[in-house]
Design a protein around this nucleic acid. Sequence first.
DNA 1: TTTAAGCGGTTAATCGGTTAAGTGGACTAT
DNA 2: ATAGTCCACTTAACCGATTAACCGCTTAAA
Lengths: 338, 338
Amino acid sequence: MATIKDVARRAQVSTATVSYVLNGTGVVSDTTRERVLAAVAELGYQPNYSARALRTRSHTLGVVAPGIAGRLADPATAEILAGLSEAATAAGYCLLIAAPTDSEAEGELDLRLARSGRVDGLVLFDLRVADERPAVLAEARIPAIAIGAPATGVTCPIAGFDLRAGAEQATQHLIRLGHRRIALLATSSDLSISEPFYAGYVAALHAAGLRRDATLVIEAGSSEDDGMAAMQELLAVRTPPTAVLAATDTLAFGAMHALRDSGKVVGQDVSVVGCDDLPLAAHTYPPLTTLRAPRRELGATLARHLISLIERRTVPPVTLLPVRLIVRHSTAAPRAAG
Amino acid sequence: MATIKDVARRAQVSTATVSYVLNGTGVVSDTTRERVLAAVAELGYQPNYSARALRTRSHTLGVVAPGIAGRLADPATAEILAGLSEAATAAGYCLLIAAPTDSEAEGELDLRLARSGRVDGLVLFDLRVADERPAVLAEARIPAIAIGAPATGVTCPIAGFDLRAGAEQATQHLIRLGHRRIALLATSSDLSISEPFYAGYVAALHAAGLRRDATLVIEAGSSEDDGMAAMQELLAVRTPPTAVLAATDTLAFGAMHALRDSGKVVGQDVSVVGCDDLPLAAHTYPPLTTLRAPRRELGATLARHLISLIERRTVPPVTLLPVRLIVRHSTAAPRAAG
DNA sequence: TTTAAGCGGTTAATCGGTTAAGTGGACTAT
DNA sequence: ATAGTCCACTTAACCGATTAACCGCTTAAA
């Protein structure tokens, strides 16, 4: 592999000049520039990444996500990653993905990657309510941005979806259809996003003069199976709900499965609303009414903001992308109120 | 940030000794080793990645995948990535993800990442039939492994699923149920995996004394919408199929949607078999009979093999992981043959 | 005419590690 | 007593870039 010295020799200049030409820094005459570029082309020269990174920055954004039973395997994550990756590459950065192991937990991995200079900054998935990661990274002066919702004591910028407005809008939709007993399949209350989602749900109920029924709020996990189990639980309540708002499409899919198993017709008997609008949501039976979350756009926003932080520009502390209700066929007026 | 010099000074040794201790190379007395380790701990020393990589290797595996409308956003990919990432991290490697752009195509990006030493090797997703990537990389002596099926002229190791056996098994299943007109929703014929899938389908038909009907073989794309469109096409045929084998679950989901739209009951009227066994497949209506592909395991295999190549060990040219038919409720005996 | 600034380069220090070669002292074999 | 081996380190070259400092020359400003 040709090095900068080979190029310099062939172009009869010093390595400094080659560097200046390639980086557009410094002043170089046109004829010299051309000689250098010709040498670069002839040798097929490619600057060594590690050498450059040693002097400058790594130009890499880090993502630490558990592979197993975790974020990485989630279809919604995939699209955020796609957006991240595209925006990062467009800005001259790459995306590094690492998985925590038994011997190295998420937080330690975050620190190691950043402190070893392997990444210039980190994207934190699934911000939790009392997440220590932002504080730890902030103390070490490591640029970071979290995906989620504002949580107390979080010291790094946050980007996410406006789930409060979304949940409110979705709940309103159900109320307008005539539903009065509306259940909530929430994600783990550890997650920062669970709070605004719940708040939006409650706000819509209150605005309509409805009371929240604690038995209709279930903290489900995240998988289809979790959604299914939660729905079964709801069906066993004295007066089951006529509508369900699920915090993710995946939970909604599980809920729909449980409803069908118990002989209910989704839409006719019980309405279901999801959140994410996975590509699949349009193709389930019935097609799912859901909140469309612009995941690619979130990915791109994360990349842009993180790069801004790395390059010492400022970014808004909180960026919430709007979600929009997509009405399909999993929601309808309740039977009795028909 | 502390450097190796700081550690050396504090432990009263040379930087070489520190390096020997940290890497387990060289001979160092126990007392010195302890002094060094103590200094490391006290300073919170973390070796600089770029400096190390400059002398040795990058310890990074590369994945080049188009973000938009591409591989990265696919739920099946996500799990392969999860497996890759976990196995890579466990072996001391990381995963780098980059997206091609308008100005830099996939192949160029592959080359740049490898030739700049940013990655030690590459995982090639979606091996195509006449894919030039393996040859280009082989010529540049860049370790690479492709995901797909053996294709003519491919000069790098390949790992994938045994789709030929899988498709055969799935087709057999449909034949045993009594189906005679079995359609195939194939992926793009550009992809290397389309060939074995088709071959397995045809082999099962022939073994049962059935003839392949060209009108029942449709080259669909990859999205749910593609599956839906293809199914609509099949429904318009003079004698529509009573069963459909789809090359991916995603295509199958689309096909089921089209069937429902045209008033057919999936399973009762038309059987559908998918391939992948996405987590969702168990929760659709009806739950999808499908070929389970061990995606995480494939990811882990890819990582292990690629690392072997990087470290100059040999790997089998072709590794096909077995797939297994999971029978759910989207397949049943055809109406007439009840 | 003298001074300062600008141009188009070069030299060499530097980033932070790895590792081949060398070195001094203790110990063993002859 | 002398030479040869280890042992446990150290020295210093090296990986391949970036970049501050400098240099000789020309040209414009005072």
